[in-house]
């Protein structure tokens, strides 16, 4: 049996009286591209931050690659890559200097890491602009640098928070294809958090739908569609969210 890359058991996070995440339990298999879906404010980013140890859970527990998210925070971060939503790269740096900087945060440097940086710059078509200041980069170009930094440590698990937001259709297509190839060719587990339903539909085998901090559904995408008699992802999502509103008006 494939070992679970991520395991959540009744994970909750409160900010004062506000329940951002409420009793979420799910399992993500190794090598899977797992879609984490929900609209803005659903609790996706809070969950991701808890899994990376950036926030501590109010209750419940979770393991990432077999490690406890409260006790083994730094070990988890060493093994994972993360692309946050809404970030700005330092304008005075270049893609090359920024990746060298990130490698140094892992204590890495020298020829081996230079090779890895060159490989990533080449992979994302950034070699020609490797020494240009990031200040002049478009959203798509910045996102490529962001993804390159997340992959620098050759992570076993990749957390992507709204990675396609702000990308043009071609950039989006390329990114989704690349994410898929990471899982298929290199066995990287990807937790793909987004509110863009078509992105989930095109690359994820398994999904979890989060709404107002609660898990509405979790399982193989096709099975969920069949169970809720929905042909499209949009229909599935709307059925579940409306159902949840009827239950909790």
């Amino acid at each position: 049996m494939t070992e679970a890359a991520i395991q959540l058991e009744n994970l909750s996070k409160n900010f004062g009286q506000f329940k951002a995440v409420e009793n979420v339990s799910l399992q993500i298999k190794s090598g899977d591209v797992f879609g984490f879906m929900g609209h803005n404010g659903a609790g996706k980013t809070t969950t991701l931050h808890m899994l990376l140890g950036l926030l501590k859970p109010s209750s419940g527990q979770a393991r990432v690659l077999g490690l406890d998210i409260v006790k083994d925070t730094l070990k988890i971060r060493r093994l994972c890559g993360f692309l946050p939503a809404n970030y700005n790269l330092p304008k005075d740096m270049t893609p090359h200097s920024f990746l060298t900087y990130i490698a140094a945060m892992f204590g890495e440097g020298g020829p081996s890491i230079e090779g890895r940086i060159a490989e990533l710059l080449e992979r994302f078509g950034l070699s020609a602009v490797a020494d240009k200041k990031l200040g002049g980069f478009s959203t798509g170009m910045s996102q490529k640098v962001g993804l390159a930094q997340a992959l620098l440590n050759q992570p076993r698990l990749l957390f992507l928070d709204e990675p396609t937001a702000g990308l043009d259709p071609l950039g989006r297509h390329d990114l989704l294809k690349y994410i898929q190839s990471l899982a298929q060719d290199q066995g990287v587990t990807v937790l793909f958090s987004t509110h863009i339903l078509s992105d989930i539909e095109s690359i994820c085998q398994h999904v979890a739908i989060l709404h107002q901090g609660r898990l509405l559904a979790n399982g193989p995408l096709q099975a969920l569609k069949a169970a809720h008699k929905s042909e499209k992802m949009d229909d599935l999502y709307l059925t579940l969210v409306k159902g949840s509103k009827d239950e909790n008006p």
Binding site: L54, L74, K75, R77, C80, N86, Y87, P90, M105, Q149
Partner: peptide, 14 residues
Amino acid sequence: AKGLLTLLRSKPVS
């Protein structure tokens, strides 16, 4: 403010 801190904090450092 730039949103860069979350990215830096996701690395294995406190």
